[in-house]
Computed example of a mutant assay.
Amino acid sequence: MRAEEAIHAVTSAATGVGLPAHDASAVRIGENGVVLLPSAGVLARVVPRAAKGSDPRREIEIAAWLASRQVPVVHPARPEPIIIGQYVVSLWEYLPDSRPADLVTLAECLRRLHSVPLPMNLLPHLSPFDKFEVRLETGAGLDTSDRVFLRQFRDELSTRWNMAEFALGEAVLHGDAHMENLLVTPGGRQAFVDLETVCIGPPEWDLTLTALYYECGWFSAKEYVDFVRTYGFDVRRSPSWPVLRLIRMLRMTLWLAQSADNDPQRQRQLRHRINTLQKGTAPAGWTGY
């Protein structure tokens, strides 16, 4: 998706429902797009109609359901998505001056989320390798040998995943639980965002990113200890930790491959990640993007 395409879709959707869109600007563009409408106080999400695994209507329903269970979430600005050509636009409240949560707040909110009773017929079950093939084939900087290795790596991890043991049972998951997906406003409001990955699965999945980022050196020992103490469980002590961390590293590598085109620094990091996965030394030397 190109920035101009996302802005055009959002501008058309907003003006069609009477919202000002003259100051629309792209916030993030990738597989999906995020566009800010400052005058309307709205953040718009744009997804291709043909995108697999993306359902803006379900995302809006999930937000309403989680809010009814006292889980802090961002609120939709409109109860229905809007179809504009080949794109679907959903409109969400904009939280100005918000910042990513600290790890203690993330742990507290994950405990609250994971304690919600499982719903009937609303959420899919976790699929650890969703979008793998699409990202593998479209990843910039991946050659044929990379794709062969990564596909074999996925197959081995899939077998291990099917045999993995999880100590915490099943719960409602965010699915992509990191600090930037939990915002805190200056007034102290907390809100989970990017709800398209919400699903049912083992809570260990949501805890793995923080533990892996700590292994990467992106958090201090004290920050990670505080996270573990607040949540009450260290996923690194779980028998499923070895396969969880490898699956997450595989996903992080493919995510980077989506944005490595024409960026030498990202291309070098992508090559480093693949090399360390092959050698078994990952995540040594992994940098954050």
Results as ranks from 00 to 15, higher is better:
S259P: 04
Q267E: 03
H272I: 02
N262Y: 03
P264Y: 03
N275W: 06
L270C: 00
N262A: 00
K279G: 07
R268Y: 12
G280P: 05
Q258W: 00
A257Y: 06
R266M: 10
L277V: 11
A260K: 05
R273C: 02
V243F: 14
S259W: 10
T276H: 15
L254T: 09
R245N: 04
L277P: 06
R266L: 14
L246V: 06
R273F: 09
N275H: 13
M252Y: 12
L254P: 02
D263Q: 14
Q258P: 00
T253S: 10
T276N: 15
A282Y: 04
M252G: 08
R273W: 07
R271C: 02
R266Y: 15
M249K: 12
S259N: 07
D261G: 06
A257D: 06
Q267N: 06
R245M: 12
Q265K: 07
I274Y: 11
T276Q: 13
Q278H: 10
L246S: 12
L254R: 06
M252N: 13
N262C: 06
S259G: 05
R245D: 10
M249G: 00
L250I: 02
Q267M: 13
R268I: 13
Q267T: 08
L246C: 01
W255L: 07
R266E: 15
Q265C: 00
D261P: 04
V243Q: 02
M249Y: 04
R273S: 02
R251T: 00
R273T: 07
H272Y: 08
D263I: 11
Q278A: 02
Q265M: 01
R251D: 04
L246G: 07
A257S: 07
D263T: 12
D263Y: 09
M252T: 14
L244Q: 08
N262E: 07
Q267Y: 07
R273K: 13
L250G: 02
T253L: 02
L250M: 13
L246W: 09
R268C: 11
Q267C: 03
L246N: 10
R273P: 07
N262M: 05
L270N: 04
H272F: 01
G280I: 11
G280S: 14
I274G: 09
M249H: 08
L254C: 10
R266V: 09
R268E: 15
L244V: 11
